[in-house]
């Protein structure tokens, strides 16, 4: 069931992306930047930037991750959640 939903979501997403990439060929861009008129510039940018960001953040986490009680009582992180009334 879940697998089915996941797969259909992926397919729909893929179709949308193909559609958007296709539209790219027919839309004339005249921004002042110039280089962004390279075909599929924004598609590539979005994809690469996202993936790079995730991998860099994962690398960062290796360095800076600490247990929740690191700062002890001076921080809220290890507190059991206060009652919110």
């Amino acid at each position: 069931m879940t697998n089915y939903i996941t797969r259909s979501v992926l397919i729909v997403l893929g179709l949308i992306c193909i559609g958007l990439a296709a539209v790219d060929l027919y839309v004339a861009r005249h921004s002042s930047l110039g280089f962004d008129s390279i075909p599929f510039f924004y598609c590539v940018l979005g994809f690469i930037a996202y993936a790079a960001l995730i991998f860099m953040a994962k690398a960062l986490r290796r360095v800076i991750s600490r247990p929740e009680n690191y700062y002890g009582l001076q921080a809220i992180d290890s507190e059991s959640e206060a009652k919110h009334d």
Binding site: L13, L20, D24, R29, Y42, C43, G46, F47, A49, A51
Partner: peptide
């Protein structure tokens, strides 16, 4: 142009997310 480029940027990022997740 603006709408399309923005959608491209966002949807390809989402695509990246979906693939990474997958």
């Amino acid at each position: 142009a603006h709408v399309v480029t923005q959608l491209q940027l966002l949807f390809f990022a989402i695509l990246a997310f979906a693939l990474l997740m997958r």
